[in-house]
Design a binder for these strands. Sequence first.
RNA 1: GUGAGUGUAGCUCAGUCGGAUAGAGCACUGGGUUGUGGCCCCAGUGGUCGAGGGUUCGAGUCCCUUCACUCACCCCA
Length: 419
Amino acid sequence: MEIKAIRGFNDILPDEIGKWQFVEETVREVFEGFGFDEIRIPILEKTELFIRGIGEATDIVEKEMYTFTDKGGSSLTLRPEATASMARAYLEHKLFTFDPVAKLYCIGPMFRYERPQKGRYRQFYQIDAEVFGVANPVVDAEVILMLIHFLRQVGLEKLELQINSLGCRECRPRYREELRAFLSKKSFQLCEDCQRRLQANPLRIFDCKVQSCQETIVDAPKVSDFICKECDHHFNRVKEHLSMAGLEYVLNPKMVRGLDYYTRTAFEVVSYDLGAQNAVTGGGRYDNLFQEIGGRDIPGIGFAIGMERLISLLPKNKGLKRPLDLFIAVQGKDGKQDAFRIAHQLHLERIRAEFDYEEKSLKSQMRRADKLNARYVLILGEEELKKGRAILRNMANQSQEEIPLQELVQILGRKILRD
RNA sequence: GUGAGUGUAGCUCAGUCGGAUAGAGCACUGGGUUGUGGCCCCAGUGGUCGAGGGUUCGAGUCCCUUCACUCACCCCA
């Protein structure tokens, strides 16, 4: 039986890798321009980190983690997200002693055991950015501005930024209880799922697609009526700064985040071209996370972009496969040695050159050059070789010229640079 | 975890009411006078019909089981 990749784990093949490289390059340019530094963190962590960081009652921790016991008996987990690890690294290496403010980003695979569907895989890549050590709402706006700028840089246009405030550990529980009390009285109107949500996380009922549930919550209490003065002030300043920068947003009071650590500012960017999994990116503030994982009280804010979702939205002209610069076609057996020698010489000059390893007819070599989208073909003919010359053919306009082999590198370098 | 749909060549798909050696297009390989790509023409390679079992004289086709993929629920990036 042929061995296949495991469910929800995908290969990224050469013809799509250009898009990935393009996105990664843009991340580095944009994020570093905003003062962020890259950090690389392990793929495995102690299970405890995620249980405490993400929250015991969340779906991720309850049923989606790849957890196993290693040979030493420790419970380890493939990271389902990056924020907890980044916070751990910041605490562990006491990065705050150099500067309390840390702006960090990270790109890599995450793992969640979910049923795969469009835009949702068991191994998926995230681009993560976090700011640790700043409680000021100005940084919330700055992070969101960087995110939107980045999305525009990669070529996404039709996007909607949604923001909300989730309140803090003082006011959110109060609101949650109020909402639960309100809905309990009408629980008979709620669907089966929402009956369950009523106990687990009543805020989620806002997301329900069942008509009767939507009708029931129309006049339910809103977060905005319950958030405390400090949270309200914080949120207003975030909105002010976004407006100041000319950024449009949609207030979505129904937006809830699935990880326990989020507080206050929450945001999402959705695209209606994505199907059911329509969030390209999501994030928010998490002022309780550090304490949950046993550190000092440090505020944080950040976001995660889903790479696969982002890439599926990329315009067609981004990250195209790099064409072959030159194909070396040979005629006769003697030419093969020369092809090998010339190709190596060009490789050292970073010119993408290819030749045929088998002895094929010239016609077949030309066909291959065409298929590989070669811009030029160098034809090593027996007669020209005797004079130390070869034919250089431009595949696009079919013109060809005889050139001295010694000048090949310079001639090619000039031509390739020109277009 | 739940539901629906789909599994036939590398890809996209035909295949009638169950009938004999399983098809097409694209792709791939070679060729279409001795040294030149794309178009066209010719030929060739390639399939345990997802897997296992059953019904039948006979199964790609019908039944059961199972696996995989896709989409949706759920959840999230």
